[in-house]
């Protein structure tokens, strides 16, 4: 009898793992294809064969040295700068708001929480034209500062995961600290934050990724200011109909390079990331 059960378990396990293997291959294939395209020697977007006829590092070299048409190094630094700034602002804002909702009790707390939650559900790009005109009115259109403001401006609306995490930290810690004379401010920086590494990391990673993948806002705000493009908008200019043949493989190389900082950050902070998501999900 026991033998039989084991056999069934084994079969289920084999079946599941086969399925997972197939799924993971399907998932990896586009990434793999992008990677080999970035090393492909022959130009052009389409080749009738899958495996390149020749490999070269030229695409990467061109990406960083041939800045006559496409100034990728500059776009990369722009994005890095915007990502770093907005990451810092977003993280601090989100955590402070979450702390307030989690620890302080005031009359309109529930109402404000609900309103923020609802507002946070609207996609940000709904207001992009209005934002552009606001930025223009204060003379910030087509600047990197405008992008930083846009990416970090809505941060407070995404408080709920961090709040959920803070709720799991025992209140008795706060009370003990208060008895010892700590202010709310001290409690936040000295007690809550050191106990919430996973959620800090989680918030920071999400904030850092946003500028790398956003295309809509940078298009609306930068318009024709080519020098202030971020990588997403910049790389896209490489694949319009007049340039695609010469620059497609360079575009692939650019896409791979963009992935590097995000992947590095992710690998380095992965253990916190998982803990942050699940920790926050335990209690709403």
């Amino acid at each position: 009898m026991k033998h039989h059960v084991n056999k069934r378990k084994l079969r289920a396990s084999i079946g599941l793992h086969t399925l997972l293997t197939i799924l993971s291959i399907l998932w990896m294939l586009p990434v793999f294809w992008l990677l080999i395209s970035s090393f492909r020697k022959e130009p052009g977007a389409y080749t009738p064969y899958l495996w390149p006829k020749g490999f070269t590092l030229d695409n990467y070299v061109r990406l960083f040295t041939d800045t006559r048409l496409f100034n990728f190094p500059r776009w990369f630094m722009n994005t890095l700068f915007v990502a770093a700034c907005s990451c810092l602002i977003t993280t601090i804002l989100t955590l402070m708001v979450a702390y307030v909702y989690s620890r302080l009790r005031f009359k309109s707390r529930q109402a404000i929480m609900n309103i923020s939650l609802v507002l946070g559900m609207f996609p940000g790009f709904m207001s992009m034209i209005a934002i552009y005109h606001f930025m223009k009115a204060i003379g910030l259109d087509q600047t990197l500062l405008a992008l930083i403001l846009v990416y970090s401006g809505g941060a407070a609306l995404n408080y709920y995961i961090a709040k959920g995490f803070f709720d799991t930290i025992p209140k008795s810690l706060d009370e003990a600290a208060t008895l010892d004379g700590a202010s709310k401010h001290t409690i936040f920086w000295k007690i809550i934050l050191p106990n919430s590494k996973p959620i800090v990391v989680n918030t920071a990673i999400n904030a850092f990724i946003a500028p790398w993948v956003d295309f809509i806002f940078v298009s609306v705000i930068m318009k024709d200011n080519y020098n202030n493009y971020t990588v997403a908008k910049g790389l896209y200019t490489m694949v319009d109909k007049a340039n695609i043949y010469q620059y497609y493989t360079v575009f692939c190389a650019g896409s791979v390079v963009v992935a590097i900082p995000i992947v590095l950050l992710f690998i380095r902070l992965q253990k916190y990331y998982v803990a942050g998501v699940t920790g926050g999900a335990m209690k709403g």
Binding site: I129, K136, V220, K223, N225, Y226, T237, D240
Partner: peptide, 18 residues
């Protein structure tokens, strides 16, 4: 400004003054 011909009218109409 870098605005390809295909996008010219769209970019123009977004903000004629700019």
């Amino acid at each position: 400004g870098v605005v390809g011909t295909a996008d010219a009218s769209a970019r123009y109409l977004e903000d004629p003054a700019a």
